[in-house]
């Protein structure tokens, strides 16, 4: 089985995000960029499937600016076998919308015919949580979102999903789209020999035109603002005071 893993280059989760002075977006100049953490979990899961003999090949795909090549190299250094970069923007500030990403991925999948797509449940930059679902709809494949456990069986996948009320176990027919959640696994560090080998693994570069997909935006961002600053907390002197404040100020009990 071939596993396809889409990976996105996003602002590093450790970076303190700053909104641009003109409120058009987030300041990305000189900011550390990394692989979306949920995508790292997806890559790790794919590698584990391969190590367990359940997958033969792992293909990583990234859609974005040229620099997304670094993100793909990271996936290759972790253990993916080859990579496809779809250069869809020149400006690091351009975000390709989920529907365009899903259409491009569908085109790649039509060519590659993977048995499983493992993707992050969302990218930590825009928190859309949409690409996997849209892709499943475009392909007409089964989908299992928010996976915290994945077991591949004959022709199907048993997926434990993190839902609001607890855990839900479902069985989906393959081929399937599985979007992964935080607790699925802990991604490995790239080993030094794999870092050195990553350069030698194939990385194809394509454009949206190669797949006949239009990536022009359908959404307009009106304004980006900082979330309101949190107010400082207060110290309470006694349990009685705490209860009083929870009742009358916070109104939660």
């Amino acid at each position: 089985m071939k596993v396809l893993v889409p990976v996105k280059r996003v602002i590093d989760y450790n970076v303190k995000v700053r909104v641009k002075a003109d409120n058009t977006g987030v300041d990305l100049a000189n900011v550390k960029m990394s692989m979306n953490p949920f995508d790292e979990i997806a890559v790790e899961e794919a590698i584990r499937l391969k190590e367990a003999g359940k997958a033969e090949e792992i293909v990583a795909v990234s859609i974005g600016v040229k620099q997304a090549q670094e993100t793909l190299r990271t996936a290759l250094a972790m253990g993916a076998d080859r990579a496809i970069l779809i250069e869809a923007a020149d400006d690091v500030g351009t975000d390709i919308e989920p529907l365009a990403v899903a259409k491009l991925l569908k085109a790649v999948i039509d060519e590659e015919q993977p048995g499983l797509v493992l993707c992050g449940k969302q990218a930590i930059d825009n928190d859309m949580n949409a690409t996997g679902q849209m892709l499943a709809a475009l392909l007409g494949w089964s989908q299992a979102t928010f996976a915290s456990k994945l077991e591949i069986e004959d022709g199907s996948a048993k997926v434990t999903r993190e839902v609001d009320g607890g855990l839900q176990v479902i069985k989906v027919k393959m081929p399937a789209i599985v979007s992964v959640d935080l607790r699925l696994n802990e991604p490995r560090y790239a080993s030094l020999p794999n870092i050195m080998k990553a350069k030698k693994k194939p990385l194809d570069t394509k454009t949206p035109a190669d797949y006949g997909v239009d990536v022009s935006p359908r959404l307009a961002v009106l304004k980006v603002e900082e979330p309101p600053a949190r107010k400082a907390g207060v110290k309470v002197g006694s349990v009685a005071e705490l209860v009083e404040k929870l009742k009358n100020e916070a109104g939660v009990i």
């Binding site: 990394s34 190299r73 990271t74 250094a77 560090y189 790239a190 870092i195």
Partner: peptide, 15 residues
Amino acid sequence: TEEQEMIVSTVRSFV
């Protein structure tokens, strides 16, 4: 190089 960048980021996360 890309390898050197990855070496740096891997050791950084390790530390």
